[in-house]
Amino acid sequence: MNFTITKVQLFLMLFFRSTGIIFIGYPETIILAGGRDAWIIFFVGSLIVFFQLWIYEKLYKYFELGKFTAWIYIFIWIIVLIGSIIYMQYNLNIWVQQNTPHTISLVLMLLISFYISVSRPSTIINLPVFIIPFIFIFIIYLLFSIPELSLNHLFPIGTSTGGQWMKGTMVAMAAFTGLEGYLVLRKYVLPEDKISFKDILTFQLSITLFIGFLVIVTKMYFATDALPYVTEPILYILKSIEVTFVKRLDIFFFFLWLGWSIISFGLIVFNIRIVYFKQKRKHKIWPMAVLHLIVFIGSVGIINIQVMEFIRNHFHYFYIPTTFILPFIIMLFNRRRKSKCAEL
């Protein structure tokens, strides 16, 4: 695995990795968890993540995975992969394909991801670029819902309870799941591409504005009591927007989301690939085939509402251990060891 990336590519990958799979359903989760102040909680959570990223940048040199920690991460990422593919498949069944067997669509999606994973690294590094124009189209179409938005839904401020704040902050940070990829990929950035405070700020601001926009639109669109009945609020909003030339925007944007998610899925696989191929390995293709097979077997039998609700209600518990605690333990541990070595 010999490659270099620019900082633009690094941030693009992180953006699409984090927003990828969750963005159509995320606003509902955070609003239900955080109550009326959810949108403020989200910005607060994003601020915390910003400082976390900043510390990452200071310490990334110490993030070196040993054999054991590497396998822990690979295991965690496989769990994330299985969860994502279940979520994608379930939504595919709900929104468009009621009768197509799970296996067919799962195999097709995994085949694409497999194809990406055996291509050269630059393929997956640059794939997110294809989504960029669609983000703008997506936002423009969401803006069509402005006449139905009501500012009244955002106020009054300060009604969420302490418990809501706690849980809300956790969910807010979960919007940035996958930031551990920053530590994995940071080393491959061209040395002449210095990442400054401003770069991190720009990145964090853009991802916050994008998801924050979705949260606010959802909050302003739905009545508080109507929201719990809806599963993917963004698609619901798109479904009820009236434009003259096409009737069901949600179908197009569902497939945009699916493409986005497959690329995001590929980015997680890419993380696994980097960590796994750090040691010299004999085979290049087989491990990837096995990985996709594991994901397939792990997901194919359990695509139902019970698992879905479990994923929806628990995905935010992933963030703190994997993106917060574990990296910091590794970095601090390595730092101490290095300073000790220096002393000797």
């Binding site: 139905e148 669109y221 739905f222 009545a223 508080t224 009591d225 109507a226 009945y229 619901y236 479904k239 009820s240 009236e242």
Partner: peptide, 12 residues
């Protein structure tokens, strides 16, 4: 429309 109606039926 259908969606707005649902929204309004649920809001207090």
């Amino acid at each position: 429309n259908l969606e707005i109606a649902a929204n309004l039926m649920f809001s207090e």
